[in-house]
Amino acid sequence: MNHGILVDIAFLLLAVLAVVSGWRVFRTDSMVRASFFLLLSFIAVGAIMLLLAAEYLGVAMFFMMGVEMMVMALFMVMFMMNPAGLNPMVMVHQHRISMGAGVTAFLVLGLMALLTRFPNRPLPAGLEPVASLGHEMLGGSMLIFESAAVVLLATMIGVVVLSSHRGRYGAANEGSLPPGLAPGGDPAGKPKEDQDGGHEHHHHHHH
């Protein structure tokens, strides 16, 4: 009895936190603050998951999103024109359409939630959520789980290749040149002379 009330209070607070901080992400000037607001939203949702007895998922949410948002914040600082938000600026386009799309999505999904009758089948009494998840991941759905793992590995390699400055055949922004067919000979697939190389763009930026 007591517990139900406590859980309700916690849920309501966390729900408000999740929505408000989610909204603040797109309303704050500072990019670092934006990513930490998003983190706050994730943490609130993770805590709600804990309230729903998803013990592993809720906690995984904390550490996954903690790291992810930290990286996000750094990239914000790296790539945004104005990372500190010293000059507030509106960097949005199609504002009205987006607003409409967001509200429509909420209304449609909300109406679906309100109007559909979902079966009421709560967690069975003896369920151990963590063990059940583990058995599923390394049992029935092992293929899915392992595919996700392989995709993650591929992502890691792809990301390093994409973002590394030095490619296998030279700097990333100079176009690649495969090695010669014979030692010292012409390269295998000789590219045409680059007329609009990255270098030029670079200069342009500084003017």
Binding site: V19, I97, G102, V103, F106, L109, G110, M112, A113
Partner: peptide
Amino acid sequence: LLLAAALIGIGLYGALSQ
């Protein structure tokens, strides 16, 4: 589900507008 819908709505707004 309403909470989830609200998050998705805000997210959609952000993804389209930024």
